[in-house]
Design a protein around this nucleic acid. Structure first.
Lengths: 120, 120
DNA sequence: TGTCTATATGCACATATGCGCATGTCCAAC
DNA sequence: GTTGGACATGCGCATATGTGCATATAGACA
């Protein structure tokens, strides 16, 4: 399984071109929004309608809908219409891994800072 | 190894609070910038001075320096002064994993889209 | 057909952010 | 001490983006 930035050989990594780098940056940008992360977190437990997400998040219908659109356009969510309702669910399993990696990194970072204080 | 959003039990995930979510979003935001990704890519091969990075990227000294500051403030890079030069190196190994995950996801996404065209 | 609910979207506004120019700071070498 | 190189930063500007309000669209139900 190769990838745009996966190791090509043992130590050599293929470099992304400007266009690919732009796409990677856009993917990260989609995740760089607290409300979108909140929506993803909720949807990790299963699919839900827009109204359900509005109620759980406390956000406005406009805002929730727009963020869901952004996440769907990035292929991170799938859309399913049922009657007048629209159900969204996580389409890309890597999203959860990305969040876990960042959370783990932040936790480690803060732990080390706490240790540094104790060491003083 | 627990984490702010790691699985607490088999299927139950602990939810982040607003503050933690904000921090996760900020971490993603740091990565949501093509020039910063370019700098990280280069630094994956080893530490380098600001001037070295300016020459390799073709960016202005101002811009490179500012992005390096952003990455360092986020604890993704480490700074080492040697004389009048400053050398930067990757401090957080998860950054590489994050980029690889996104690249893999994008590659899969485009492959599936290509297949969909062929299927037609 | 008319009304109510669910969802999406055009518009305007406030804020955030990347960028270049000019300048400041720090260090080395003469 | 002075000069020059390496790096950082204040300022202003252009652009991008998140948000709410009002409205449009679409489907359910009487």
């Amino acid at each position: 399984m190769s990838s745009l930035c996966f190791p090509v050989s043992a130590k050599k990594y293929r470099e992304l071109n400007d266009e690919s780098r732009q796409l990677v940056a856009q993917r990260f940008a989609v995740l760089a929004e607290p409300m979108r992360l909140r929506l993803l977190q909720i949807l990790f437990s299963g699919e839900l309608s827009v109204n359900g997400l509005v109620k759980l998040t406390g956000g406005t219908q406009t805002n929730v809908s727009r963020h869901l659109h952004t996440l769907t356009a990035a292929h991170l969510l799938d859309r399913r219409k049922q009657g007048s309702q629209v159900f969204y669910r996580v389409a890309d399993p890597t999203v959860r891994k990305l969040c876990e990696l960042v959370c783990g990194s932040l936790e480690k970072q803060f732990s080390e800072q706490a240790d540094a204080f104790r060491a003083d």
